[in-house]
């Protein structure tokens, strides 16, 4: 039962995250969607540990993931600050000079 709920939770988070990344235009919101997606992965690791009886290992992996993904979030937010400063907006549609 718990396993099923965990799997559903993971899938839901993946869905929300990927959907958000496909439709959102704001850099900050994209970072949030990315966070949701990463949390899906962290949850998946915990769920995996729960299912095969190595919950502690799963949890420690999830913690490492959270640390690593904080780094990504920090860099992402730093870029967002610079984007706001140099483009005057956080809209990614303004960031489309590089194409073709």
């Amino acid at each position: 039962m718990t396993g099923t709920i965990l799997v559903i939770g993971v899938l839901a988070l993946i869905g929300v995250g990927l959907y958000g990344m496909m439709i959102l235009h704001n850099v900050l919101k994209l970072v949030v969607a990315l966070q949701i997606l990463t949390k899906a992965a962290a949850l998946a690791l915990v769920a995996a540990g729960y299912m095969n009886g190595q919950l502690q290992l799963g949890q420690s992996l999830a913690l490492t993931v959270i640390v690593a993904d904080t780094m990504v979030a920090v860099v992402g937010l730093a870029l967002a600050v610079q984007v706001r400063r140099h483009f005057g907006t956080l809209d990614t549609r303004a960031l489309s000079t590089l194409k073709r």
Binding site: V10, I14, G17, L18, M21, V27, L30, L34, L37, T38, A40, A41, A44, L45, A47, A48, G49, M51, N52, Q54, G58, L61, V65, D69, V72, V75, G76, L79, A80, Q82, V83, H86, F87, T92, L95, S96, T97, L98
Partner: peptide, 27 residues
């Protein structure tokens, strides 16, 4: 900056997918 943002977002999605694969295998 534009290149950096795109690279970051896409790479991060990629690495989450890898992580999901890891979790699946672990499970």
């Amino acid at each position: 900056l534009e290149a950096g943002v795109k690279y970051l977002v896409q790479s991060a999605v990629g690495s989450v997918l890898v992580l999901l694969g890891v979790a699946l295998i672990f499970a």
